[in-house]
Design a protein around this nucleic acid. Structure first.
Lengths: 212, 212
DNA sequence: CCAGAAGCGGAACAGTGTGACCCGCTTGGT
DNA sequence: ACCAAGCGGGTCACACTGTTCCGCTTCTGG
């Protein structure tokens, strides 16, 4: 039930057909704007994307924050479900890695979710849902550590941090991240999370290449 | 000459002693506020920290942006100098790793620098200085790759991205990052950047631990 | 087809926070 | 002791926000 919060927010008797259509547009537009703009979305951003006036937005929705909170609640709950599902995987590493991929992908593709999970947006009161997600991720990480497929010299909390940081923070030193930069970062991070593999020799190659 | 831009901005004949003192306070306060608040600093933040009125700020400084740009220019130039210095290290990996550590540390400890290098703050026209830093980092990375001490299956640009992402973006799923979280992340990332070390067996341990 | 209720758009409002300016008072240096 | 240089912070103009309101339009049931 990944849409339950939004459904609850917009519950109403029997709206007119055009009103129903506008509500759907509004929700879609909000998701879109939230993805692109993060928690800095404004009512005008949303109304414009939906091709709708401000009055229409406020007809169905008590406030902007209530709308954002409902959408984010559903998104977070969906992540939690995925984490719980990953616990069922027979392979502890594969379960973890697959979850990590979809977790990072979702965070990378939605600034709004990223903002919410990064502690911005306390005004939305999402802590209870975030707590559920955190617990599920903890189980996933600790299972992998106990199975010996994830470094045990780390606190489990280091793993969520490492995953969260796979998302590029905008540009970097003038370089524009590709849409798949999160995947490239995640590859490095997942490699770094595997148990120490003979800790490569300090300097196996030539000491320095003065050329260039 | 890491203070040249600030010095140039504030150049003046022979200010009165109290005026000179206030300018110094102002610069120190701006650095501090920039570290804590990032590019969102306001004139009031700065004046208050300096224990000075707004009028005093505008006496010496043409605009807030000019002040921020001068300070950030000097900070970026200092990073560039460190990168250039690291190129002199006889050990390509050590030179790279040491630079990486101070680079990430500086970004982690100064929101303002992090903002600037993350592409926020185009209004400040820092591109020329950022370009110099980027070039220096490229040399450092490619030297390490040629020396065989850094994975060669990565584009050099992936490395700045990986380093930039070591900085935790605020909280994560409700967990508060410690002051040294960047160091923990960096450790994972640096391990992931070393050449493939026998790519650990897929699942060396028990398939799953249903306990917990 | 039509009446009237439901719905609509967007101008308007109130609040906040910003950078920048100015001017009556204070202070340092000669 | 004089007075220019310097100071503080009240003030202005503006940008932008969430929300409300109301005259007009559109849907729908009979």
């Amino acid at each position: 039930m990944p849409d339950s919060a939004v459904a609850a927010l917009l519950a109403q008797g029997r709206p007119r057909a055009d009103a129903q259509r506008n509500v759907e547009r509004l929700v879609a537009a909000t998701r879109e704007a939230l993805d692109e703009l993060g928690l800095a979305v404004t009512t005008r951003d949303i109304a414009q994307r939906a091709g709708v006036g401000l009055g229409t937005l406020y007809r169905r929705v008590p406030s902007l924050d209530a709308l954002l909170a409902a959408i984010l609640t559903d998104t977070i709950d969906e992540m939690t479900e995925r984490a719980a599902h990953a616990l069922d995987s027979p392979d502890a590493w594969q379960g973890f890695a697959e979850f990590a991929e979809s977790y990072v992908q979702l965070r990378a593709s939605s600034c709004g979710l990223h903002d919410a999970l990064s502690g911005r947006g306390e005004r939305l009161d999402l802590e209870p849902r975030i707590t559920r997600l955190r617990r599920a991720m903890r189980q996933l990480v600790q299972r992998a550590q106990k199975a010996g497929v994830l470094r045990s010299d780390l606190d489990w909390r280091d793993v969520p941090f490492a995953l969260a940081t796979a998302i590029p923070p905008g540009h970097t030193i003038g370089l524009v991240p590709g849409d798949d930069q999160w995947r490239r970062n995640l590859r490095i991070i997942l490699d770094g999370l595997r148990p120490a593999r003979s800790l490569a020799p300090e300097a196996p190659a030539a000491p320095a290449v003065p050329s260039d």
